[in-house]
């Protein structure tokens, strides 16, 4: 019924570690956007940690001095949600990761092909892209249901 539709779907990124992409970014502990599984893999103290695109609310990027910053905001209870995003949280009693910020140097070291911050730039662009596609699809599915 209408109630169940409103509950935000608990989408799962990977069923097991075998589905994780074998990309150098994952191994090198950079950010990697997996378009196939619609997941952003973020390095957290040595571990590549997947976050499904549906958990990400918005992202912002800034350049200050020698550094580029990428901030990722996640959906969590207590934040205002627009009607299109809709829905409730299936488990409001859990602890939510709200926000995560990364920093990267803009300058190249000798011998480097690109500056470390190019990873954050690419991630920013790809997250936007995958998010857009995901939202469009969600909206289409909602339309079909109505």
């Amino acid at each position: 019924g209408k109630e169940s539709e409103k509950v935000r779907k608990s989408t799962v990124s990977y069923k097991s570690v075998n589905q994780m992409p074998r990309e150098p970014e994952v191994k090198d502990l950079k950010l990697y956007v997996d378009k196939k599984y619609e997941t952003v893999i973020m390095p957290i103290f040595g571990l590549p940690v997947p976050f499904h695109i549906s958990t990400i609310k918005n992202i912002s990027q800034s350049v200050e001095g020698d550094y580029t910053y990428l901030r990722i905001n996640f959906f969590h209870p207590g934040a205002t949600m627009s009607k299109t995003e809709g829905g409730t949280y299936s488990n409001p009693d859990a602890t939510f990761l709200k926000e995560i910020t990364y920093r990267s140097i803009n300058t190249k070291e000798p011998g480097e092909i690109s500056a470390p911050s190019s990873n954050l730039n690419t991630a920013f662009r790809l997250i936007k892209e995958v998010q857009k596609r995901f939202k469009t699809r969600e909206a289409e599915e909602r339309e079909k249901e109505d």
Partner: peptide, 14 residues
Amino acid sequence: DAPVSLMEMRYHIP
């Protein structure tokens, strides 16, 4: 030394 360095994390606590 890390290509991307984690700066900050915020948690929502019930």
